[in-house]
């Protein structure tokens, strides 16, 4: 999903040829770049943007699922969903801390999210209407995220790669719990089956959009690939996702909402793969530009959380300063 973080990224950079060539040689030798190392401004800027938007996606991603915590159908499901949403918060924090090593402040990133300047994944601008949506999100949205994130574990920027390794370890539980919810519904009553099918119908196409525009329309892919920020193109990852996911859905009796979806034995250099229908890119850009069903709601929720939490942050700082001043006064008195 986080390849969307590269939309509109400016990879332009002004360093001299020798500097850029030396940097590229380090990248080509698979050396990791660490925060204090010299790096092209374009590399720094692209990473701040991508990691920041990835972090925002994790944080905003807590909202659609948080919507169902109080209404989870059993204690087991509630405990699992709570743990998953807490993980998403943790992932956001690992990523913010990785971005901060590049010289951007946390408050600056928060400000950009709340003002709408920074984006987050388009997928979180869709509503979670039924419990089955929690299953569909875990299975499809986290499944697509894993496809994107596994190659990011080998990203050339050390702190990002290390954060992604932690994230990927935790993400696998998310996908399995989602698929299990879908499977349970598909083994249930007709109404439950319908609910699962309806969730797939609504989440399938937005999940495919998570991988970002087609390679032919993706302007900054090349430079990001050269710098090994990205390892696979949007279309390659999308194809992998479709090939992995379709059999899983068919196994539990779901039908994909795409009449053009069909097995093509010649695809993927003869290994076979699925052909699939045309993605509605108008819908994608509509959502990315802020007009999806939930864009306003999501930002309003984040803004409320930030503003309502201000007195807590201020009080904690004031308390810390007071204790520090008292400790110093006691020290002087003792001398």
């Amino acid at each position: 999903m986080y390849s969307q973080g590269l939309i509109g990224a400016n990879t332009a950079t002004e360093e001299d040829e020798a500097f850029l060539a030396a940097f590229q040689a380090r990248i080509d030798a698979e050396e990791k770049i660490e925060p204090n190392d010299a790096m092209p401004e374009g590399y720094r800027r692209t990473l701040i943007r991508q990691i920041g938007q990835h972090a925002h996606s994790e944080i905003v991603g807590m909202l659609p699922e948080g919507n169902w915590i109080t209404r989870a159908p059993s204690l087991k499901r509630k405990a699992a969903l709570l743990a998953k949403v807490q993980d998403e918060g943790g992932h956001g924090l690992y990523l913010y801390s990785a971005a901060e090593t590049l010289g951007v402040s946390r408050d600056q990133m928060t400000e950009e999210l709340l003002s709408g300047k920074a984006k987050y994944s388009s997928i979180f601008n869709y509503p979670t209407l039924t419990w089955a949506d929690i299953g569909a999100i875990g299975w499809l949205v986290d499944g697509a995220a894993i496809m994107n994130q596994i190659p990011l574990c080998r990203c050339s920027f050390g702190p990002y790669a290390r954060a992604m390794i932690r994230v990927c370890k935790e993400e696998s539980f998310h996908q399995r719990q989602g698929y299990e919810i879908m499977m349970t519904l598909m083994r249930g009553t007709d109404e439950q089956k319908e609910m699962a099918q309806d969730a797939l119908n609504r989440w399938w196409w937005p999940s495919l959009m998570m991988f970002g525009p087609h390679d032919s329309d993706s302007q900054h892919g090349d430079q990001s690939m050269k710098w090994k920020i990205k390892r696979f193109s949007n279309d390659e990852l999308r194809q992998k996702f479709v090939d992995a996911t379709v059999p899983q859905g068919e196994f539990i009796g779901l039908t994909f909402p795409d009449p053009d979806l069909k097995w093509n034995p010649d695809k993927n250099d003869g290994k076979g793969g699925y052909d699939f229908g045309k993605i509605d890119w108008d819908e994608f850009w509509h959502v990315v530009k802020g007009n999806g069903p939930m864009n306003r709601d999501r930002i309003a929720a984040r803004r409320k959380a930030w503003e309502d939490g201000a007195w807590v942050r201020d009080a904690a700082l004031a308390h810390a300063e007071k204790r520090k001043a008292r400790a110093e006064a006691a020290k002087i008195a003792a001398e």
């Binding site: 690992y94 801390s97 942050r313 904690a316 810390a320």
Partner: peptide
């Protein structure tokens, strides 16, 4: 293993 923001050592 990473970093975080907090008002004091205990938090």
């Amino acid at each position: 293993c990473g970093s975080l923001h907090a008002a004091d050592a205990e938090l």
